[in-house]
């Protein structure tokens, strides 16, 4: 079981959290203007890397707030936890 460091509550067990999939998938600015292909990209297509992955979690049994995690999909090691609106670790200067 993962140990996840909620940015608001601290280290808790994975069972308190729910998974939200890939992070930073932005809602199209004008949904009426996108083509069917672009809509499918937004709605269904996802990165699925073997390695570091930026993903969303929600502390559903705790503070019920969303946040982002950088985690390795083979070792499961969590290398960063950051709040919504903050840039992902690689994007930091």
């Amino acid at each position: 079981m993962l140990q996840i460091d909620c940015p608001w509550c601290g280290m808790r067990e994975e069972m308190e959290f729910s998974y939200g999939g890939q992070a930073h998938v932005a809602y199209p600015k004008d949904p009426h203007a996108v083509s069917d292909e672009d809509w499918a990209q937004y709605l269904f297509m996802r990165d699925n890397p073997k390695g570091l992955f930026l993903e969303r979690w929600v502390h559903s049994q705790g503070c019920r707030r969303w946040f982002n995690v950088e985690r390795h999909t083979v070792t499961h090691e969590i290398t960063a936890v950051y709040k919504p609106g903050e840039p992902p670790p690689a994007a930091k200067p």
């Binding site: 079981m1 998974y19 999909t73 499961h76």
Partner: peptide
């Protein structure tokens, strides 16, 4: 397991 993984190993819970 709910999260993405390539580890061929699941969680005990």
């Amino acid at each position: 397991d709910t999260f993405n993984s390539y580890s061929q190993r699941g969680s005990f819970h």
